[in-house]
Amino acid sequence: MVHPDYTYALQHALAAATQGLAVFPLARSKLPAIRSPHRDDPNPAPGVCHGECGRLGHGVYDASADPARVRELFAAAPWARGYGVACGRPPHHLIGLDLDRKGDADGLRDLTVLAAAHDFTVPLTRTVLTPSGGRHLWLSGPADLVVSNSVRRIAPGIDVRGSGGYLVGPGSRTRAGRYRLAPGTAYLPPAPAPDGLLRLLAPPPAPAPPPPVRTAPVRASGSVSPLVNFVLGSVQGERNERLYWAACRAYQTGRGEDAAEALVAAAVRIGLPEREARATVGSAARRFRGMSIGARISDGG
């Protein structure tokens, strides 16, 4: 029997595709529903194949606005309960502002402060309410500007979804709950991002090349190899989230100390800065410090 959440997500994904938005199925974890076809490769080359192999399972790179292709993707993932909307693609060149509402973080307040400081007005645009009380603002960007994904770069409560990233589409159900369109915004197109905001979103200066040691092979014991391979199989837009999940799983099962360095090395190999990778693994360690082995991972909003 087809699950109602699957049908609901497919209907919303097809509706988004008719508006020129490229979509693909998500699991309840908010990760791509179709697993990477390269996950069992003996010598994985993460970040190289973006679907050129012709198989499904390349995350946001599978996304399509062709209804037939969307149906094919969902048919390959009957466990899907949501869908992702690819950012940075024509015709909208979508930019997503993820405004958090957790603890001390208040993304809407931070955006208001940024607007005042940089002399721009936040436009009325399509807005998605998240299960945690946050919201996603959908904006369109210029075709000649590549906006990168970032976490808390422009403000503590704001994450940015750009080229290679995706937003959870309205109508999706995750472990945290349902994503819904904010009242009055359902029929609004993504509004053009104001110039003052675009200046903040422009790519930061390129970092210095990493030292040769970072290209060293990733070494991991057999017990943590599946977690390392899970990180190595990440594509751009999901690397940090997959690293955090793998680190949480390692600490949850008492293998955190054994896995930490291997997970950091895997993350560096797929392009995450070492400092960011260590911070992510450290967050997982703090989360499970003092908790008993076997505690369940809470997904948050």
Rank of each mutant, 00 (worst) to 15 (best):
R214Y: 11
Q236N: 05
G222W: 08
V213R: 15
A246S: 15
P205R: 11
P210M: 00
T215C: 07
V218W: 11
V213D: 12
N229T: 13
T215M: 03
L227G: 12
G222K: 03
G254I: 05
R249I: 13
P194I: 10
G196T: 03
P209T: 01
A208N: 04
A206D: 08
P203L: 11
A247F: 11
P203Y: 05
G196L: 02
W245M: 09
L197D: 07
G237S: 03
P226F: 10
P209N: 02
L198Q: 02
R239I: 01
G254S: 03
A208P: 06
R239V: 02
Q236T: 13
S221I: 02
R249T: 13
R199L: 07
V228Q: 04
Q252K: 10
W245E: 13
R214L: 13
G233T: 06
G196E: 03
G222E: 10
E238K: 00
L200E: 08
R242Q: 11
Q252E: 14
D195F: 03
A220E: 09
A208G: 09
P226W: 13
D195M: 07
P205I: 06
V218S: 12
E238N: 00
A216Y: 04
L243C: 11
G222I: 06
E241I: 01
L243N: 10
S223A: 15
S223N: 10
L197N: 04
A220N: 08
A220I: 12
N229A: 12
A220D: 08
G254R: 03
L201V: 10
V224G: 07
Y244K: 09
G237Y: 08
S223Y: 00
P212Q: 05
R249F: 03
L201E: 10
A208E: 15
E241A: 14
V213W: 09
Q252Y: 00
R239T: 04
P209D: 05
V218E: 12
P217W: 09
G196Y: 01
D195G: 00
V231L: 05
A246M: 12
S221K: 08
G233A: 15
